[in-house]
């Protein structure tokens, strides 16, 4: 399943993405999260050490998290700020911590947390504004390590067709 989370308030982007995906015959679910109540991760570590797998913040993210753990691909549509994802886009990633456990292992030469679920969700970014594409691609590759998966790339919204070709 392809999961697309639009953290911008521009639903026209979702409409275009949906139209392009329909042309390819693939199936995707698009969630409009631009106006959802999603708080930033508070770093409480409860999802690792107190209520394993469950975030202590009770807001709209739980609905998204339950979708992510069953998705083959997660695409985040985000506005950018200072060249990077804006806070709404970053919060989607920061709140992913419950998919990992507290337990550790080495993956190649680096420490990593052992994943909670078997599902591997590859991740990609579609962004608006003055994002630093080279950096966002580098960052998304690193971010994928937190999902135990691989990066699908970072694409300016003007090139969303390229992103959809990766779906």
């Amino acid at each position: 399943m392809i999961l697309i989370i639009n953290t911008t308030t521009d639903q026209e982007i979702s409409r275009q993405v949906r139209a392009f995906i329909q042309d390819t015959g693939k199936e995707a679910e698009i969630i409009e999260a631009g106006k959802m109540n999603i708080h930033p991760c508070a770093g409480c570590n409860h999802c690792w050490l107190k209520t394993p797998g469950v975030c202590s913040i009770k807001d709209d993210y739980e609905f998204i998290l339950k979708k992510i753990i069953h998705a083959d691909q997660l695409w985040v549509i985000s506005d950018t700020a200072w060249g990077f994802l804006d806070h709404k886009g970053k919060n989607i990633y920061d709140r992913i911590l419950p998919v990992a456990t507290m337990y550790l292992k080495f993956s190649g030469k680096q420490m990593r947390h052992i994943m909670r679920y078997k599902q591997k969700t590859d991740i990609g970014i579609i962004y608006t504004g003055d994002g630093d594409r080279e950096y966002l691609e580098r960052w998304n590759k690193r971010a994928a390590l937190n999902f135990g998966s691989r990066s699908l790339g970072a694409f300016p919204v003007e090139t969303m067709k390229e992103a959809i070709a990766c779906m």
Binding site: P40, C41, A42, G43, A81, W82, F84, L85, D86, H87, K88, K90, N91, Y93, D94, I96, W139, R142, A143, L145, N146
Partner: peptide
């Protein structure tokens, strides 16, 4: 700052915006 998913925490980004 602490590293949050390989970069700056969302809350700090919200302030920087």
């Amino acid at each position: 700052l602490p590293l949050y998913v390989e970069c700056i925490p969302g809350l700090l980004m919200e302030f920087l915006e």
